[in-house]
Simulated scan of single mutants.
Amino acid sequence: MQRYTKPAILMHWLIALLIIAAFSLGLTMVDIPGLTPTKLKYFSWHKWLGVTVFGLACLRLLWRLTHAAPAYPTQMPQWQRNAAHALHFLLYVLIFAIPISGYFYSLAAGVPIVYLGLFPLPVFIGPNPELKPLLKLAHYWLNMVLLAAFCLHVLAALKHQFIDRDGVFRRILP
């Protein structure tokens, strides 16, 4: 059974863990009432995670474009291969779209992002009260689609591991 390359495996799991952390932090911070120092700290961390995910996603995409994924088992039905390709494509779109939507939402809210408190990111748009709620909604719904896609991805991996026993899941294990 062919496997993904070590850099692809590392980026897969690192990005997954960072997304889980950012998602969890996002849910936590929006439930904190008011504007507290803790809430502001969580917002900063959430944004830093998003920027990091975006940077790693860029590296991962470059790697993926120059390194083919291992082939699926020959006994895997074509509709499952098509579904897997579609889901992976959706996951790639989302790991770019979510940080971008969050970045522009922050800018529309008039809050520039300073990565790790040290590196100010470019400001492409100024505060925009009309655009802010649309970007907030887009960021929220993109995350909900990611949650659904993530769950489907995990369930498919578990199916391949425990029901099909075809080695698909082992291709990405460290």
Rank of each mutant, 00 (worst) to 15 (best):
P174L: 08
V30S: 03
K41Q: 12
P37A: 00
L134W: 05
F150N: 06
S24W: 02
S106N: 04
L158P: 04
I9L: 13
P73Q: 07
L90S: 14
Q161G: 01
V51M: 10
R64T: 02
F119M: 12
A148M: 11
A16W: 01
L116K: 04
P7L: 02
K132N: 11
S101G: 12
L134Y: 01
A57S: 14
A71C: 08
W79H: 12
A148G: 11
A86E: 09
T38H: 08
I32L: 07
G55K: 03
P70A: 06
F89A: 14
A156Y: 05
L49W: 10
Y105T: 05
L56Y: 09
Q2G: 07
L35P: 07
A86M: 11
L131V: 00
G55H: 10
L49R: 04
K39I: 05
F96S: 06
P112E: 15
K132W: 06
V145D: 03
E130A: 14
L65K: 02
I172A: 06
G102T: 09
L152M: 03
V51F: 04
K6R: 13
P112A: 11
H67W: 02
L94C: 07
R165K: 15
L18W: 01
M144F: 06
L62D: 06
F43W: 10
H160S: 04
P129Y: 09
Y4I: 01
H12L: 08
A83T: 00
A68I: 08
T36A: 12
H85F: 13
L137W: 09
P129M: 11
V145M: 11
L17K: 00
A71V: 14
L147R: 00
G126H: 06
T28Y: 03
L118H: 07
A156G: 10
H88G: 04
I172F: 08
W79A: 12
V123C: 09
S101P: 10
I20E: 11
A156W: 10
K136C: 03
P33I: 03
H88L: 14
P112C: 06
P99T: 14
L17Q: 04
V123I: 15
P122T: 02
D166A: 06
Q2A: 14
P37C: 02
V30M: 07
H153N: 04
H12K: 05
Y103D: 07
L116E: 11
K159N: 11
M144E: 13
V51E: 01
T5S: 14
G126R: 06
L25E: 13
P7C: 00
V111M: 12
M11H: 09
C58H: 09
I100R: 00
L35A: 13
A16M: 03
A138L: 15
L56R: 05
W45C: 04
F162G: 03
P122C: 01
L91Y: 00
Y92V: 10
S44Y: 05
A71P: 03
I125M: 13
